[in-house]
Design a protein around this nucleic acid. Structure first.
Length: 213
DNA sequence: AAACTGACCAACCGCATTTGC
DNA sequence: TGCAAATGCGGTTGGTCAGTT
């Protein structure tokens, strides 16, 4: 992997995708010591990552309350509403969608919504009334009435995943996790040429399921 | 089957803000 | 009050994969 020597001290800094081992170390460390003070956390945990990288990994992927899976129509509706109100304030928008990260919303906006907005035939809102028109169109095709509020959505359609209790039996989880991966590997008979062990979305989901959801 | 293309998303980078001394 | 370090945020990049030619 890409490694750069640091200016002041010759410390290796890992970049690129996180391995399962690194994730395990980070989860374990935070389970025991809590999050925060990321630079010293990274050092204390023995991770060759920057504090920034650890924080990002934790917030966007490893946090137990991160909600994976497709953005629902109701969430899309809410994102569009909030973006019309606040612009590219992704973290602010993300706070209104529990379990979703600013990075995820930002990516979603750019790859899905913005793409459609650029099409000339579609409504591109430049003011509030245009936006409301678009939102009404969205809402009419969803389960929520067009005058639904954020609170309506939250009460009716959002059910947060129960947090996994990562303090307790994380080691046994990993044993199960690895066994599952091996079984899946055998089933699909796909040659694995990765030297590192990478996580995928399903791993995180199964983590939450295994821990009592 | 191979090459190409576009969509998606994890992770990095740089800058702004906050915090602690 | 000023400075350095830590943190937070938004923009961007690069890798992967699925679909198409």
């Amino acid at each position: 992997m890409d490694k750069k020597p640091c200016k002041s001290e010759e410390v290796e800094v890992r970049k690129g995708p996180w391995t399962m081992e690194e994730d395990l170390i980070l989860i374990n460390y935070i389970a025991n010591h809590g999050e925060g003070v990321w630079n010293s956390l990274a050092k204390a945990a023995g991770l060759k990552r920057t504090g920034k990288s650890c924080r990002l990994r934790w917030l966007n992927y490893l946090r137990p309350d991160v909600r994976r899976g497709n953005i629902t129509q109701e969430e899309q509706f809410l994102i569009m509403e909030l973006h019309a109100k606040w612009g590219n304030r992704w973290s602010k928008i993300a706070k209104q969608l529990p379990g979703r990260t600013d990075n995820e919303i930002k990516n979603y906006w750019r790859t899905r919504i913005q793409k459609h907005m650029n099409k000339p035939a579609e409504v591109c809102y430049s003011n509030q009334s245009d936006c409301e028109l678009l939102l009404d169109q969205q809402a009419s095709s969803s389960q929520l009435p067009c005058n639904s509020t954020h609170a309506d959505f939250m009460e009716t359609s959002y059910s947060p995943l129960s947090s996994f209790n990562h303090c307790n039996n994380i080691e046994s989880f990993y044993e199960q996790h690895q066994q599952q991966q091996q079984q899946q590997q055998m089933m699909i008979e796909s040659p694995s040429n990765h030297e590192d062990h990478y996580w995928n979305m399903e791993d995180i989901w199964s983590m939450q399921i295994l821990n009592g959801d």
